[in-house]
Design a binder for these strands. Structure first.
Length: 475
RNA sequence: GGCGCGGUACCCAAGCGGUAAGGGAGAGGUCUGCAAAACCUUUAUGCGCCGGUUCGAAUCCGGCCCGCGCCUCCA
């Protein structure tokens, strides 16, 4: 039984979609004003694991994610870069999607841009005006939260303590009540604006998500996800906008991903611990290790992202790759080991149960590693049989369909690596191994070791076994 | 101040009333020409602290200490 911690109720609830077998979910995507950082990617990796788990649990998915391509930050940065807004945001939208690809984040069924939905937003604002939830000031339009009785139900925030004038950002836009938020911003000189049925201007941030989510997913979504900081005010405002209009529940489940800290401290540019994906790849860490670390800690727990953690993640992946290497290259006697067969057969359910429990990824990893150790022990004891290989590899693949840190297959990996410049081809490697074999036969171990070192330097791992040397490319 | 999350071995981390998963790192061992890989043993009589409930608590209750987040369009 699949269960999620629902922010709306504050409890763990069984997940039952509105339509049997179908899940409609929405993710608050990035604002494309710069390269996304690893904190952003923790949320998106979490969404990805959620998606994959739902899909592999048999649900048909309709997942929508937005790209915020018009707001203060995008406007300011594009101006600083001397580029038109659309050109500027296009650049970072593409960078974001590239980064997602490197992290094996599946593409949602639909990715939507705010600027493609300006008229939809204006129309929704018009309807909210007609229903009396708004007011105008200096050609901007605000949402009056006192008109929406349910305000605060998601974040459980008590707004009575926030008084007008206190703790309010010095927004150039005048609000009647500090707690209100802007739906539509009046045009300003040097800022892009659109002509719409509510007049010229540009949309506030919150309106895009409720408009695009309901447009593509209907009045009521099954799941809405985002970073924990978005619960208030962003998601609270989305609810206020959508439910004021439809009178229906906007989203039935709200999942919030906890933030990460870096080396125990909040990530910030001034502390020098602010990392984009590109920064880390540039330091030589693999995308797989980054994904592993981001996925290994369950999403509701704060994750301490460290360079040591990345090394540990890489070592863990290495262990799994070594294991698959053994599975695919070692000779085993015919037959089947019933104990191993039973353990492999028990894997899918244990794995499923771990993820069903509010996506307990740490446990889901543990389940696999236990199987790996059991199989390795069996191999070393000479008990492993050829007939067990397929089932074990299936477990590995099933696990990897969620975590996506191992190459899809050895064959795929080889092809990929061969195209990389400066690496040795298979025949080169075989030739060097032949040289090394001869050297060893002649008991010239110094030469043999030198050849092995050369291969290691080229990313080729050599292992001597009773059946001769075997090798693989190290990722 | 309000709301929320968390403190489990050297590091990461599961565990949600029945006697401490898993990964990484270290130490010792097996195997090996040497490695590598793998396996075995080992590293928390104790889960922030103090009380309480219970036959039994890391797990429940009360109090306290510490870290972090949100309450400012920062995932």
């Amino acid at each position: 039984m699949l269960r999620f911690q629902n922010t709306l109720s504050g409890k763990v609830e069984e997940f039952v979609p509105l339509t049997k077998g179908q899940v409609r979910m929405y993710t608050c995507g990035p604002t494309v004003y710069d390269f996304a950082h690893i904190g952003n990617f923790r949320t998106f990796v979490f969404c990805d694991i959620l998606r994959r788990h739902l899909r592999l649990s048999g649900y048909q998915l309709l997942h929508v994610m937005n790209l915020t391509d018009v707001d203060d930050k995008t406007i300011n940065n594009s101006r600083a870069a001397g580029l038109p807004l659309a050109e500027y945001t296009q650049r970072y939208s593409e960078a974001f999607l590239e980064d997602c690809q490197r992290l094996q984040i599946e593409r949602p069924e639909k990715i939507v841009r705010a600027t493609d939905h300006i008229q939809d937003m204006a129309h929704t604002i018009r309807l909210l005006e007609e229903k009396g939830f708004t007011y105008r000031r200096d050609n901007s339009i605000y949402y009056s939260i006192e008109k929406f009785p349910g305000y605060g139900k998601l974040s459980k925030i008590d707004l009575s303590g926030i008084r007008s004038g206190a703790r309010v950002d010095q927004d150039e836009y005048a609000k009647a009540d500090a707690r209100d938020f802007v739906l539509w911003k009046a045009p300003k000189p040097d800022e892009p604006f659109w002509e719409t049925e509510v007049g010229p201007g540009r949309p506030g941030w919150h309106i895009e998500c409720s408009v695009m989510a309901t447009k593509y997913l209907g009045d009521t979504l099954d799941i809405h996800v985002g970073g924990t900081d978005l619960a208030f005010p962003h998601h609270e405002n989305e609810i206020a906008q959508a439910e004021a209009l439809t009178g229906k529940t906007f989203s039935r489940y709200w999942l919030h991903c906890e933030h990460l800290v870096v080396e125990g401290q909040k990530m910030s540019k001034s502390l020098g611990n602010f990392y984009t994906l590109r920064d880390l790849l540039g330091k030589g860490y693999s995308a797989a290790a980054i994904r592993y670390l981001l996925a290994a800690v369950p999403y509701r727990k704060q994750l301490n992202f460290t360079m040591d953690g990345l090394r540990q993640a890489a070592a863990s992946i290495e262990r799994l790759e070594n294991f698959r290497f053994r599975m695919t290259t070692m000779p085993f006697p015919e037959g089947e080991n019933v104990e191993i067969a039973a353990k492999a057969a028990a894997f899918p359910e244990a794995f499923q149960n771990a993820l069903d429990d509010d996506l307990n990824t740490a446990q889901a990893m543990g389940v696999l590693f236990e199987l790996v150790r059991d199989a390795n022990t069996s191999i070393d004891a000479g008990q492993f049989r050829k007939g067990n290989i397929t089932a074990i590899l299936k477990c590995l693949d099933r696990w990897n369909e969620i975590f996506q840190v191992l190459p899809a297959s050895e064959a795929g990996n080889e092809t990929d690596k061969k195209t990389v410049e400066g690496t040795l081809s298979d025949t080169d490697v075989e030739q060097k191994l032949q040289d090394r074999r001869n050297a060893r036969k002649a008991r010239d171990f110094a030469l043999a070791d030198r050849i092995r070192d050369e291969l290691i330097a080229a990313g080729i791992l050599v292992e001597d076994t009773a059946e001769g040397a075997r090798w693989r490319r190290k990722s």
